[in-house]
């Protein structure tokens, strides 16, 4: 990890401690508040990875991923919020040279919602999901990404899966201003693989830290849980896997193929790590007060939004074979 990234890890760790940890449960119940969003803006986290000439902080990949990692450790919903803005929305606007809108987003004057549409798997006319619906939204359709002015007609869906984010379904949307062809959006998506991996690994670290602390103090049959082989061995194995994956995340490598490899492994790892973390909390893990169930829930929910089990693996397979593969 380079010095800049290490500093960013410390800074964002402090930021999360001061601004997120105490309200993590509130975020799960009510979403990311205006106050918290403004703190993200003031801290320069929205636009952190944009080039300086576009009004961003121009952070390198690892420093930006340190932000996502640390935020996900505290609140996966907040991390996804930053990812959605920086890695997808602002990248689309940057490529479409929409500096005026970028300026308004980075300064906190407007917030855009995202309709990921065809970029994620499982979208259909019945369940076209919109994340953080706003007066202005980016819609990723089959041929283009476009800017939709006005709020779509929402169905008032009440899923409890992604509690810290406002998500809904919509019936129809009007046509918007074309920004980019789909192929360019696909490229942005693939470049964001490192960032998605950072969130999956942050979720895993947040959950495993809680499990390790809990199993030190929780006793059963007169011994702390950590003294039992199945608990200590499993958590140690998971922590080892996590450290090895973090080494890749914070390495100097920024190749797209490695990013996709890391995302593929991290997405599955987050589901597995959070499951064990909850399991070793026993019944208490099932309660939101203990702060571990959100990691378990979000690891699966964010898999649906940041990892495509078919399309991403097809991209990975094509990069491994050097030609189109895994399509039958």
């Amino acid at each position: 990890m380079n010095d800049q990234t290490e500093m960013m890890m410390d800074n964002i760790g402090q930021f999360a401690k001061a601004n997120i940890n105490d309200i993590a449960l509130k975020i799960e119940r009510e979403g990311v508040s205006e106050d918290l969003y403004n703190s993200l803006i003031q801290q320069g986290l929205i636009g952190a990875n944009l080039p300086a000439e576009m009004g961003g902080a121009g952070l390198d990949r690892t420093s930006y991923d340190a932000i996502l990692f640390q935020l996900a450790r505290a609140s996966p919903s907040v991390a996804f919020h930053v990812f959605m803005n920086n890695s997808i929305i602002l990248k689309i606007l940057e490529k479409a040279s929409k500096k005026d809108i970028i300026d308004r987003i980075v300064s906190g004057k407007i917030r855009l919602g995202l309709i990921p549409g065809n970029i994620i798997e499982g979208s259909s006319e019945k369940s076209n999901i919109i994340i953080e619906p706003s007066k202005m939204n980016i819609y990723i359709g089959t041929e283009n990404a476009s800017l939709i002015d006005g709020m779509p007609d929402l169905l008032k869906s009440k899923s409890l899966g992604l509690r810290g984010l406002k998500t809904d379904l919509f019936t129809s949307i009007k046509e918007g201003e074309k920004l980019l062809p789909y192929s360019d959006v696909e490229k942005i998506w693939n470049e964001a693989s490192w960032d998605a991996a950072a969130i999956f690994l942050g979720i895993s670290e947040g959950a495993l830290e809680k499990a390790i602390e809990y199993t030190k103090v929780r006793k059963t049959f007169n011994f702390p849980l950590k003294d039992y082989e199945p608990v200590a061995f499993r958590l140690s194995e998971l922590k080892s896997e996590l450290e090895i994956l973090k080494n890749t995340l914070f390495s100097d490598d920024s190749k797209e193929q490695m990013g996709m490899m890391l995302k593929t492994i991290s997405a599955e790892f987050a589901r597995r790590a959070t499951k064990y973390a909850l399991q070793f909390h026993g019944g208490y893990g099932y309660l939101e007060d203990f702060g571990v169930e959100k990691f378990y829930r979000d690891a699966v929910a964010l898999n649906a939004l940041m990892f495509r089990p078919i399309l991403d693996k097809r991209t990975l397979a094509a990069s491994i074979y050097g030609e189109k593969s895994g399509y039958l």
Binding site: I120, E121, G122, S123, S157, G161, T167, A304
Partner: peptide, 9 residues
């Protein structure tokens, strides 16, 4: 995993 975004909603 099979149903993706649909399953989520």
């Amino acid at each position: 995993e099979i149903t993706g975004a649909t399953g989520l909603q």
